[in-house]
Write a protein that binds this DNA or RNA. Structure first.
Lengths: 345, 345
DNA sequence: TTGAAAGCGCTAACAG
DNA sequence: CTGTTAGCGCTTTCAA
């Protein structure tokens, strides 16, 4: 069952294999009539070039890898979707790998990726802030782009959002609603966004002349479970907050659970705000007020960078550092309609 | 910066390239001392065989593709995770592709996959029941395994669960709780599971001598939004159900939203059951009673099948048809603890 | 048990 | 503008 090769096409079209190659790759210097003839045969025979042969002889593999810490998170799903669609458009393929923090993850990952001749790697949080990982990729000379990194400007291209401003904006929204005792639930310390979001919250509180009681800031790890625990502690305070800003949606859902279990009306007795606009932010009643982060668009930009041949040499160029816009999404967990019922649906 | 090749290793170890190849691939007929020496050099040089060269000359690519209809769903995420981990174990790579129902998806998909020399493809619902797709793969001679297909036994290997029995079991649970007016929300008609789950529900109702009023069965499409709409209609019935069985968790969440919005106490006034044990089934209060489906394990089995060289020729063997066990998970949306509060956390 | 030779299907480099 | 010649790095044959 030998497969159709470039030679078959060449023979049929009455040209050399190289000419077929030129046509397929859109190279110039082919006479229009020959080009047309080749394309015709390609269609006729339904020929597809073998990706392996192609990348063995050229330097490009048309293969990107998406490295993910927690593939089950809604965040990862959105990023993946964005990358997937852009890869499809550009005729790239996407290999997804989970990076587990086992004893020798570096070795495993390295052996996994190095044989692959990848055109590039996309790093999602918190991997984008892992020095060991970025060093590894640099050593292996594999181009990479970071999504939502928190520091290390010059390391590589990246796509990020201004988390601090976004956190400030959602805080301002809560303050504008009349809240002054606002609880805050922090995320996983391994994520750069954890510090940035807290900072955005704190600076906005300060700007509004509000002080933050120390016991209103709680630890979390971005899981809904941790949000539940933190919120439960906040809600059992003698003087409990009238609003809680959980620094991602999963923890905001945990907060909503804790409130519902105690029979507190949301948003009337307790307002809740999240961050990320995860799919799950829309599956509760009330729905969550949150910050929309264009995760899919960010991933698509990352693909664009890696697909750009110039990126390989100029990955630290400022043109490969992009900031995308966020958007405050006000829903029922903080908002009330004219009828006094939570906004939504 | 030419990369390390098998020749470098051969030279260093004082053997031929072929011997190195034998060692790497675990072939027999190599003297132990030579084998050890080669392995030593491999470690020393940190050599990784080039995956492209390997698959160009052999028939295997160590590449599997996971085809997904809706990558944003919790279902897809779980399946992907399971496949990912098993691939890692077996030194396979996983390419994820979204299959969009555009005009010429077949052509796109075909060109996307055919050049890749895939060792196999994993089909998730509802793609596993798409005849056009399975035919396409058969024609291209690409082995595939279906996850949770609803029919076509002989088409390929598969891993499935007994959805009908599971639906019966959860229905029995509701009946055992004293419910007799039970609403049912159907899923997307394109999914085979939609019919099977309804059938399991209906047969258990019949077995218990209960009749199902026609207006208690509602259409949905597996989205939480559709669950909300269907549940809202059920709850506005003059004689509303005391329990609702939504045939997946997303729709059960929509049901919970509708109930909460109306101020109905769950599970006291309305019991809710879902199906799938999606991550989101645990982020509400109360948490959802559901059927646990071992999605990750199913995906892992699929990988095992495709990695088995014998599968290529005997994909229809009965040994490649597996059924996995489900498990009823009772949580707060139907269960009440000793204190009268919903079970959970 | 080992190695030499001959490709896998494609593209880079060079001629024409 | 077009074709020829060499490989890319590995595995397959087959002979030793």
């Amino acid at each position: 069952m030998s497969v159709l090769t470039i030679k078959d096409v060449a023979a049929r079209a009455g040209v050399s294999a190289k000419t077929v190659s030129r046509v397929i790759n859109g190279e110039p210097h082919v006479r229009p009539d020959k080009r047309d003839r080749v394309l015709e045969v390609v269609r006729e025979l339904d020929y597809r070039p073998n990706a392996f042969a192609r990348s063995l002889s050229s330097s490009r593999s048309y293969l990107l890898a998406l490295l993910i810490d927690d593939p089950a998170s809604g965040y990862a799903a959105d990023v993946q979707l964005g990358a997937l669609m852009r890869c499809r458009e550009k005729n790239y393929h996407l290999i997804v790998e989970r990076v587990e923090r086992t004893a020798d993850w570096q070795c495993e990952l390295s052996s996994s990726l190095r044989g692959l001749n990848l055109d590039g790697v996309i790093l999602t949080p918190p991997l984008c802030d892992d020095d060991a990982l970025t060093t590894l990729l640099e050593k292996a000379a594999i181009p990479f782009v970071r999504i939502a990194p928190s520091g290390a400007e010059a390391v590589s291209g990246y796509v990020r959002m201004d988390d601090a401003s976004a956190a400030s904006e959602i805080t301002r929204h809560l303050i504008g609603l009349g809240h002054s005792r606002i609880g805050f639930i922090k995320g996983d310390p391994a994520h750069g966004a954890t510090a940035t979001r807290l900072q955005g919250f704190a600076s906005e509180m300060a700007r509004s002349g509000l002080t933050i009681a120390a016991d209103l800031i709680r630890e979390g790890d971005f899981s809904s479970r941790s949000g539940f625990v933190a919120a439960d502690a906040l809600l059992s305070l003698a003087e409990r907050p009238t609003a809680i800003f959980a620094s991602n949606d999963d923890m905001a859902l945990g907060t909503l659970m804790a409130a519902t279990r105690r029979g507190l009306a949301v948003p009337h007795t307790l307002a809740i705000a999240g961050f990320d606009d995860a799919p799950s932010s829309r599956v509760t009643w009330p729905q969550l007020t949150t910050i929309h982060q264009p995760k899919a668009a960010m991933a698509a930009e990352a693909v664009d960078m890696l697909a750009d041949p110039a990126y390989r040499d100029r990955s630290a160029d400022s043109s490969y550092r992009r900031a995308v816009d966020y958007r405050l999404v006000v829903r029922g967990s903080t908002g009330v309609g004219a009828d006094g019922a939570p906004r939504g649906i």
